[in-house]
Nucleic acid binder design. Sequence first.
DNA 1: GCAACGCTGGACCAATCGGTCTAATGCTGT
DNA 2: ACAGCATTAGACCGATTGGTCCAGCGTTGC
Lengths: 182, 182
Amino acid sequence: MNDRPLPTKDRLILSAATLFRTRGYHGVGLADLLADAKAPKGSLYHHFPNGKSDLAMAAATSASDEMLRLIAASFDGAESFNDGAKTLCFKLAKLFDITGWDTCPIAATLFEGPDNEDFRDHASHIYEGWIAEVQDHAARLGLSPEEAQAKSEHLFMLIQGGWALARARRSSDVIRKMTDRL
Amino acid sequence: MNDRPLPTKDRLILSAATLFRTRGYHGVGLADLLADAKAPKGSLYHHFPNGKSDLAMAAATSASDEMLRLIAASFDGAESFNDGAKTLCFKLAKLFDITGWDTCPIAATLFEGPDNEDFRDHASHIYEGWIAEVQDHAARLGLSPEEAQAKSEHLFMLIQGGWALARARRSSDVIRKMTDRL
DNA sequence: GCAACGCTGGACCAATCGGTCTAATGCTGT
DNA sequence: ACAGCATTAGACCGATTGGTCCAGCGTTGC
């Protein structure tokens, strides 16, 4: 599935991010993972000594970074909070159409994983990172600290829930229509 | 875990609903399931000829029914849409505290399951059922059809997303605070 | 040229997976 | 009491799971 030139470690992370996102942590076996990344088992345990769980952590981080880039790209040229929020929603709707009806990568990878403390902490940390990123932009665009926090959390919840509904409907319309209610 | 007097079939559904909700479809093995329900394997395949997947469907339906009852109970005595929505949020926050940081039972059971068409359809059907139930109450409370639909979808997304954030934070506060923004 | 080392390839493992099958055990109506 | 059917109990199965281990490959520095 992925380009051969990429280093093995990156191929593993990329495959893991994709597969976990679509089928959840427990839904993906090492066999699927290694076939998709075109890597042998030895490489996995060389780069990720703790195997599947280490890889899941890395995949979640990678997915989170992509999300942070998307947030930055949406708010950087924005003239108001609502402006940036709308752009973000449209970008996410497009992403939804491309990747196709997957879950939130963090939830699929970390929440469905072993009910490990590390997993939950990492997921929490990533979510707070997204909210903090939006919050910073909100503050920069003139909102009071309280307003900034409330609005970023609100946006997070709407997107998270909208994504779930969009998945059930196999249509990104709700994510786009969401912008009317901001 | 469950009361012995309950018939085996019901015990199976109850255990399945609980376990799938907390650890996801693939995260639960038949062994865990049968141990929790105190039922032998033969009973499972007698009541649910297709095994795990049949049971997951039934568990999702059961969880959905509970949700529908919760919605009805919240809106029945409500004097306005926002009134009912607030009550629902408070009830859900309490439920969240009791059950403790689980995912949406439908998502955990059906979305993480085999990427079967039946599973996705059932999940979609259940979600639309929740929205339709809220929508009916909204219409009854005087909202126009368009407003009723928009507001019920909006509420669904907020709750779904709020639940996810609450889970990451291990705190139902966001669900309660959500009511300020309706 | 050669030693050292990062990395790969895959054979192998015990444990667990979901599922099948059959014998025994209720419980029912007659 | 007996027949007939619904349910239970669990031994058993092949496939797959995540994980270990080591021999060999290829590149690098000397």
